[in-house]
Design a protein around this nucleic acid. Structure first.
Lengths: 217, 217
DNA sequence: ATATTTTTTTAGACTAATCTAAATATTATC
DNA sequence: GATAATATTTAGATTAGTCTAAAAAAATAT
């Protein structure tokens, strides 16, 4: 059994390592979690002892198979709860994150499976992110960011990388939500910003940063 | 803001004091919470500092108005979640307690009010206990225990005092659930056990302990 | 390839919640 | 009302998670 704190570390490390592929440094983790590097060193030692991380002094950590499974279990719970909040309790997509951060630590396998069933076995959450199965398997997708799209091609918004309230409210404002069709009209090479057309109606400029956080298919 | 631990103390003390009326001793609390008396002394000092308890050395504690409100807020959440688990996720009434113990510590006023709305503003939980309102108000009821009923009188089960899985499974087994009509046929003065008839069908003997934990109207 | 900067780890300390054992107060008993 | 029994508090220690400051290792720059 992991404490909520340990769970938060595992989840952050999983995300920072791009789903467990890359090594992650102590400072990268301390930045993400707003803690001191010293605290991170202590915790990664503990998680390494529990075989959730491979740790070599001064070399950062890599998440193990066991660690990945733990992370995916948490992500599954997080995304199921987000789906519940939006679909059943009428939360908007920018209101769910903080509550789901709390709910994901509730420990009850029965609750998770019943929630999954109650929601009709959803495959993606309200931000378009895939929901891992009970076995930790994630469906493979060939998504790319809006920033990577070619000029004059059209795509559909399927997910967002940043789930912060600020970003989601901005998307609501410009009318870019999941399912929106976007065409890239022009790209400014200087800063990577784009002119786009949303749903054949409105034309707006978005920054490189914004384009990086919108996932298309 | 209270920690989950502080919340558990406040809730236990509220229940032990019969909704805040009586004083509660240190040992009573440590028994209920399975902790040492020393831990209780530390914690009640802390809660007294936060004005949730009135504490006089060696004299036990009495819950304050502020403490009562906090307890009722928690009981409200607990009972709303139990209702959700039974009505929406098909939990049985003996499966909900432990999960609700976890869920009641989730902190989100919006979540509570939306859940309440989603459930159609329920007034009692699956064990028949009243759900406090947002203002902490509890509807007054004139219930009495099965043990207190007079011979040859009939009543309806409206609630249970003990929500343990063991007790609830026993009730399921003898066919006594919320809404059942029970008539007291005979009382053994020696040990207070009763012979009862449930729903005009089955006759069973129940111990004094069981009869104390079934609430009738 | 040495010096400087940056990153990481260690050392030592703090808080919350817990414990056991010892001390002290209250209650019960004779 | 003195003494024994019980209840409560204090003292001191432990664990998880955190911190700052100092030491050590690694990376970078001159």
């Amino acid at each position: 059994m992991l404490s909520p704190t340990e769970e938060n570390y595992i989840k952050s490390i999983f995300h920072l390592s791009e789903d467990g592929q890359k090594e992650v440094s102590t400072n990268t983790i301390s930045d993400e979690m707003n803690t001191s590097a010293a605290s991170v060193t202590d915790m990664i030692k503990k998680l390494a002892l529990k075989k959730l991380l491979d740790y070599r002094k001064y070399k950062g950590v890599k998440i193990t198979k066991k660690g990945k499974l733990e992370a995916l279990r948490l992500i599954r719970k997080h995304r199921l709860w987000e789906t519940f909040l939006v679909r059943k309790l009428n939360f908007s997509w920018d209101q769910v994150h903080d509550v789901a951060e709390q709910l994901e630590h509730i420990n009850s396998p029965l609750l998770v499976s019943r929630l999954d069933e109650f929601l009709g076995f959803p495959t993606v959450d309200p931000h378009g992110d895939p929901i891992p199965g009970n076995d930790g398997k994630l469906p493979v997708t060939n998504r790319k960011s809006l920033a990577e799209m070619e000029l004059c091609t059209m795509g559909t918004v399927v997910a967002v990388k940043d789930s912060s309230s600020l970003f989601l409210k901005y998307l609501d404002k410009i009318g870019a939500v999941i399912g929106s069709k976007i065409e890239v009209l022009d790209r400014v090479d200087y800063d990577g910003s784009l002119e786009i057309e949303i749903d054949k109606k409105s034309r707006v400029f978005v920054s490189r940063d914004v384009a990086d956080n919108i996932m298309m298919v």
